[in-house]
Amino acid sequence: MTGKRRIRIMVAKPGLDGHDRGARIIARAYRDAGYEVVYTGLHQTPEEIVEAAIQEDVDMIGLSSLAGAHNYLFPRTVELLKEKGADDIVVCGGGIIPDEDIPTLKAAGIREIFTPGTPLDVIVKWVADNVEPRGEY
């Protein structure tokens, strides 16, 4: 029997920023919602994140940044996914992201940005509405 497999999500912390409260809470919320979750841990370069995402065969990457380097780190991750031919992996982001940066990030291929105060349910539901498993069983 073939069928769609469970959605696999990578929660990733790019850069040197150590604020992982949000990322860890979101990883738990995805897990509790029944998704398979891979958490990278802190201090990952975009290169490391992309390599791990391909290796883990994830359907989505959630990037978290709270120290202001999102304008470099988020687009760089998408760029590397393209280079590796893995740009069907959906990328979204969250953290301390000023409103005026959001259009640029979306134009760079970040599908959604979740800013502080977004309820967990909204973040979790977004996956169901926007992410499809890339492979089958």
Binding site: G15, L16, D17, T45, A67, G68, A69, N71, Y72, L73, R76
Partner: peptide, 10 residues
Amino acid sequence: PKARGECGKC
């Protein structure tokens, strides 16, 4: 290379 995009930010 680890500092790319982070200089002087926070």
